[in-house]
Amino acid sequence: MKGISFGQYYPADSVIHRLDPRFKVILTILYIVCTFLCKSLVGFAALTLSALVLIFISRIPLRIVLRSVRPLLMIIGFTFIINIFWSRGEQLITPEGWPIRIYAEGIWNAVYMFLRIFALITGTGIFLTYTTTPMDLTDAIESLLTPLKKLHVPVHVFAMMMSITLRFIPTLTEETEKIMNAQKARGANFTSGSLMQRAKALIPILIPLFVSAINRAVELSNAMECRCYHGGDGRTRLNVLRCNGRDWASLAIVVLFGAGILLLNGVGIGYTLG
């Protein structure tokens, strides 16, 4: 369990890894918008190409990215089938009189949907989860939400909660394992029996875990007070986020890409979404 890593961060030295995390959050949002702007065949071709280019320049192995697509295969497959069988259109592919009617539009829809989801997952993965440490992400979110402070939204508190959560995930995972082993040593059984029995078997794990988590919280808050913590006011940071030309350039590229997609929507090759 010591080897547990936070999120899916994949350490590598690429341009994308070095981007300012605040820009990466914005780029992710823009890229998601791009995937939804896409309507034409050429547009989707460009989108898929861009996703592949992103994987290439981020230096993250293709299999790692594909691994994150795997849990979503069920959903993708389901929408694919629904699109094929339930879409109505003008070009009927199956012969007249068959009980199942499949239209060409249905297949286009299904393929486009698949490409869109693929680009969506790759885009968020490459811009955020694979290339940004959770700590950086927390800092970025705090920084981006700073304007909300004027509306009395406790932005600093949220960010602090997020980073403490990240800090304690491995500690509590280790603790859970310890408790489970202790209960197993006394004959507890977590792996057999009906669903109800298994759920009940979890109670002797959850109660000690909660008690210990609360005790930890008390001790941690004492320790934080001892180290002069008094909220976000007047607090400085060791790591300050800095943006440079590279960040602005990447922003410009993604915005231009979005504009390009819009233009390509007008190219009438193949099927265009309505």
Binding site: M135, E219, A223, H230, T236
Partner: peptide, 27 residues
């Protein structure tokens, strides 16, 4: 375990001085 706040050693060491509002170079 219950007194370390950050996920990186140096950021944890910086936690107290950060609360004191020190300049970045001093931190």
């Amino acid at each position: 375990d219950n007194q370390l706040v950050a996920t990186v050693v140096e950021q944890d060491v910086a936690f107290g001085p950060e609360n004191l509002g020190l300049e970045r170079a001093e931190l």
